[in-house]
Write a protein that binds this DNA or RNA. Structure first.
Ligand SMILES: NC(=O)c1ccc[n+]([C@@H]2O[C@H](COP(=O)([O-])OP(=O)(O)OC[C@H]3O[C@@H](n4cnc5c(N)ncnc54)[C@H](O)[C@@H]3O)[C@@H](O)[C@H]2O)c1
Ligand SMILES: NC(=O)c1ccc[n+]([C@@H]2O[C@H](COP(=O)([O-])OP(=O)(O)OC[C@H]3O[C@@H](n4cnc5c(N)ncnc54)[C@H](O)[C@@H]3O)[C@@H](O)[C@H]2O)c1
Lengths: 213, 213
DNA sequence: GCCCTTATGTGAACTAAATAACAATTGTTT
DNA sequence: AAACAATTGTTATTTAGTTCACATAAGGGC
């Protein structure tokens, strides 16, 4: 695995490249230039070329990139061949929306187990996914070899659940709660703070206006 | 308005500071140090002190910061006194979840109008918010002086709607679609790409593991 | 086969942000 | 009131990421 020393910022753009390449391929396009990509994904063309260059010389000078080859290449890097099982903890407003949206269609992940304390939904199937009692958390995570969890519970219980998830062997948490979680160093947290996104947008608009964030 | 030249990265942290200060105040805490803040919000203490310093000398050496004063100060910067009206375009899975979650409780914004093409919900009230026909988009945005929209529609119609929103006078779009929108330079787009967040998390876990993103 | 156009890959320059380190200043204790 | 402990505000340093600019190489036309 030679993909150490890839900048974090580059890694975050990989899925976006991949998604757009898939789109191009579906449309029958066979070649693409960094400038065309730039128009679509809105990163500077030089940034795109540099990103690609971390993985070697993937293009041809004067020609561009072969869509199919590039897509296949990134597909491997992003593990598109293996399907990751994900747990959803907290089947409320947001949890339901994520369940209904099938990540599977558009990515290499699917939510395979959900957890809640609400007796009305425990032991039901929601959007094709079984909702388990919280008591089964550790067992299901272990049995299903789940190593990523989506956390959509009320803030006051978020840290407790993060602790349990970490102990149960999860390696990543997509955290939708406003709380900044404490986790062991072998667990990666990705925060998605929707209220913050909206407030930041409002701040920029009120104080300046215009341009991308 | 002296708040030009505030780094983008700092601006994105302001709502997080504000939220935590409110929490402290509610708990009756009167003073706080950059180190205590650091524990809670998980940014380096030096980063926090630097962030604050852009706004002047807000603390006292050897003492820390006065919670109440600091909160009031940031409250003004974040326009907490005025309530921003926001439009929601696309009342599907995600749109419903955002409607049900009342931003108003936790921020200075509230969704005051929703739009969809689905006849089953047009002209109904969802979670206290009227759902209008798309035909009324321009009129409502103008009448209600809405300048931010949340976009939760299918990707294929996203650019069209962004065009209409921009023309109708909106200055900010919180974009949940995977599409990177083209907008006039006086419109700010904040992308929230949930599939990308999950895929990036998976990439990091598969290739390395551990630590915060 | 030669010339011309095109677009890559990358060294160098630039910009932004995070962190370290510490002198300056305040509150507190004795 | 002097000594001490704590914690800021900021200067300097380091790290990360973006963009420029161009020599280099490929393809396509003639
Ligand atoms: N919905 C949004 O648009 C939105 C926006 C910003 C932030 N958030 C954050 O996302 C989180 C979820 O929001 P929501 O609107 O879906 O909340 P919600 O109240 O609708 O859902 C929370 C769910 O968690 C379950 N739950 C409660 N305690 C639990 C426990 N100990 N273990 C397992 N499940 C438990 C509840 O039964 C409920 O189903 C919150 O932290 C919220 O602050 C949501
Ligand atoms: N739900 C998720 O968890 C999730 C995750 C990642 C990305 N997204 C993205 O968010 C967007 C919305 O997702 P969703 O799951 O809520 O989809 P959805 O299909 O449930 O909802 C889309 C809504 O938009 C409405 N709509 C369709 N065309 C419209 C038009 N021209 N004008 C106004 N409204 C229109 C539909 O009637 C529907 O109510 C999509 O772009 C999706 O890719 C969603």
């Amino acid at each position: 695995m030679a993909e150490h020393d890839i900048p974090r910022a580059t890694a975050k753009r990989l899925p976006i490249y991949y998604r757009y390449l898939k789109l191009l391929l579906d449309a029958g396009t066979t070649r693409v230039s960094s400038n065309e990509l730039s128009d679509a994904v809105k990163f500077d063309a030089a940034t795109i070329r540099r990103d690609f260059s971390y993985f070697g010389a993937l293009g041809k000078r004067g020609y561009g990139y072969d869509v199919k080859a590039l897509m296949t290449f990134f597909g491997e890097i992003l593990n598109q061949d293996t399907l990751a099982s994900v747990a959803l903890v907290g089947v409320g407003n947001l949890g339901q929306a994520l369940l209904n949206f099938n990540f599977h269609q558009s990515s290499n992940a699917r939510i395979s187990a959900a957890f809640d304390i609400n007796e009305d939904i425990v032991n039901t199937i929601q959007a094709g996914v079984p909702v388990y009692s919280l008591d089964d958390l550790e067992k299901q995570i272990s049995d299903q070899r789940i190593d990523v969890a989506i956390l959509t519970v009320p803030a006051p219980v978020a840290q407790d659940l993060a602790n349990r998830l970490a102990k149960a062997g999860v390696h990543g948490i997509l955290n939708f709660t406003p709380l900044r979680l404490d986790v062991p160093s072998d667990v990666r947290v990705q925060n998605v703070d929707l209220t913050n996104e909206l407030q930041t947008l409002l701040y920029f608009i009120n104080n300046f206006g215009g341009a991308e964030a």
